[in-house]
Each structure stands twice: as C-alpha cells, then as structure tokens.
Computed example of a mutant assay.
Amino acid sequence: MKVGLFALGIGTGARPGVIAKTAEAAERCGVSTLWAAEHVVLFDRQDSRYPYAESGVFPLPGGADWLDPFITLTFAAAVTRTIRLATGICLVPEHNPVVLAKEVASLDRLSKGRFALGVGIGWSAEEFAALGIPFERRAQRTREYIEVMRRLWSEEVTTFHGEFVNFDAARSFPKPVRGGKLPIIFGGESAPALKRSADIGNGWFGFSVGPDEAAPLADKLRAMLKANGRDPSEVEIMVCPYTKQITSGDLKKYGAAGVNELVIPAYPPNDESEIGRWIEQIARDWIEPAAKIR
C-alpha cells in the first residue's frame, strides 16, 4: 500500500521554501502523491454546513493563506521528478472547463505526465455565489465539464453542445501526456459520489474515512463498478483519515479494504530546517509499514 501526503498550499504549507523542501523530501522518502486542496474564497461565517466536522463549521479562519492548487503543484513539479501530483480536490463546477482543461494539460506536460485531477462538486453555497455560479445542479455540471475536458484532451478539434457548455471547432493544445486518459479521481463518500467514480472515474478519494469505514465504502464502489461492467482493479482507491485518529496498526484494515493509497493529513513545521526530519518521521511511521501491506 502506498502513502500520500495532504496538504500543500495551506497555512505554513503556502510558503515557497516549505513547498519546495516538502516536495523534495517527500519524493526522496517515498511518498507516493502530493495532494493540494482548493477553495477560491473563505468566509468568517457561512450557513453552508461543512461535511467533515460534527459542528458543520469549517475549521480554518477566513484569513488563512490558501494557494491555488495548480500553481502550488506546478511549483512542486519544478523541484521533483517522480512523485505524483494531485488535486485533493479541485472544485470543478466552480471553473470554466475550457480554461481548466488548459491548466490541467499545462501542469501535466510540465510535470511529464505526473498529474492526476482529483474532483469534487463542492459544499459551500457561499463560495459558488461569490463566483457567480449556480449551486444547484453542480453535480450535473461536473459530469458535463469532465466530458468536455476529456474531449479537449483527446481530440484535434472539438465541438460541444450541452446544457452548460457550447462551442464549435475549438483546438486545445498541448494535450496531457496521456491525452484523454489523464486520471480523474472523484472525491466524496455519498452514494452519488461513489456512483460518479464508478461511472466515469479512474479513482476514488474518500475523505475523513476511518479504518472501519473504508471496507463498506470500497465494497459499495466495487459493486457499482461491476454493475457497470468495469474491472474494479482498474479504479484506484485512496482514503484520507483526516479527522479520524489512526495508528500504524490500522494499516492492515485499510489494506484489507483494498485501499491502494492512504493519504496522511499533516502540515509542515514552521521551521523549514525541520522539514526533512518531519518527512523522515512520516516515512518511519507510515511509509515503511505500509509497504509491507499487500
């Protein structure tokens, strides 16, 4: 089982030196994937309920530093060679898909094919309102946007007429290294979220999923994949415990659930000189024992 690291680009992790040193050390110590999350704007107070806290309150203050994930990962790509880079997650319906297709393809090319697009539909109605985008039908918007982007990544010339996107004879270059097969990983733990992964995803990213929750969710996903005539082994399963406290002893439960990558939530130390030791400790605590899980 592989181990990823969440999250760059937030708070201390928004500093240039911290990003570079974390990325370099993570690659050296065997971290599989660097994950960067997305919020365009934050609020001191909002009515929308944050799904990953019992209180429903988003844990970070409105004034927290939060970098754009694509710029963050491009910065990390420049100092690494092999580690995978992924959004965890990108709020796809908040973007123009034609612009987003270009951003994704650019990052993937500059990283030589190391990028995976982690996708979510969003939970903050206030953020959508600030961007002038309807909160309703965001799931349908996301599916259409994914279809548009995959076509732009694979076709020489693309014409598309849908509910949300309309254009004729557009050319979008460069293409991602794998073209339309660039991995798309859907986040979310609800039945509709799992269905998106089963229908059109290359992976599933479960957030705030404890060791006892992983197997039931993964089983649901595999059942949906089989119902769609898809091979479950071709869809990667990644989970992050986030608010759930876990120990290295829980790795066996995640492995038994069929988890391919456990994403460790950890923020870099304030002292940049400590980053190497911090990543080395993550390697001892998680990467080394996870490597023994088959």
Rank of each mutant, 00 (worst) to 15 (best):
M1R: 09
K2P: 01
V3D: 08
G4E: 04
L5S: 12
F6E: 02
F6R: 04
F6Q: 05
A7D: 14
A7S: 15
L8I: 00
I10R: 14
G11V: 06
A14G: 15
R15F: 14
P16G: 11
G17L: 09
V18L: 09
K21E: 15
K21C: 01
T33W: 14
T33K: 03
L34V: 07
V40F: 13
V41E: 02
D44E: 15
Y50P: 10
P51D: 11
P51N: 10
P51T: 05
Y52I: 01
E54G: 11
S55K: 01
W66T: 04
W66Y: 15
W66H: 14
I71D: 06
I71K: 13
T72Q: 05
F75T: 12
V79Y: 11
T80H: 14
I83K: 07
L85G: 03
T87E: 14
G88F: 15
I89H: 03
C90H: 02
C90L: 07
P93N: 01
V98W: 12
L100A: 07
E103L: 11
V104F: 02
A105E: 08
D108F: 04
R109E: 05
S111M: 06
K112E: 10
G113P: 09
A116C: 07
A116E: 13
L117H: 08
V119L: 07
V119F: 00
G120E: 08
G122R: 11
G122N: 05
E126N: 06
L131E: 01
G132C: 00
I133T: 00
A139C: 05
A139S: 14
Q140H: 09
Q140N: 09
T142C: 15
E144S: 10
E144F: 14
Y145V: 04
E147F: 01
S154W: 03
E155T: 00
G162R: 12
E163S: 12
V165L: 12
F167L: 02
F167V: 02
A169P: 01
A170K: 14
A170W: 12
F173H: 05
P174T: 00
K175I: 10
P176H: 12
P176R: 10
V177H: 01
G179P: 08
I185E: 06
I185T: 08
E189L: 06
S190W: 07
S190C: 10
G201R: 11
G203Y: 04
F207E: 00
V209K: 04
A214E: 01
P216I: 08
P216K: 00
D219K: 15
L221A: 03
A223T: 15
K226A: 06
K226M: 06
N228K: 10
G229T: 03
D231H: 03
D231R: 03
D231P: 05
V235N: 00
V235L: 08
E236F: 00
I237L: 08
I237W: 02
I237C: 00
P241E: 09
Y242F: 15
G249V: 11
G249Q: 15
G255P: 04
N260F: 04
N260M: 01
I264T: 15
D271Q: 13
I279L: 14
E280T: 10
E280H: 13
Q281N: 14
I282N: 07
I282E: 07
R284M: 11
I287E: 04
I287A: 04
P289K: 08
A290F: 08
A290M: 09
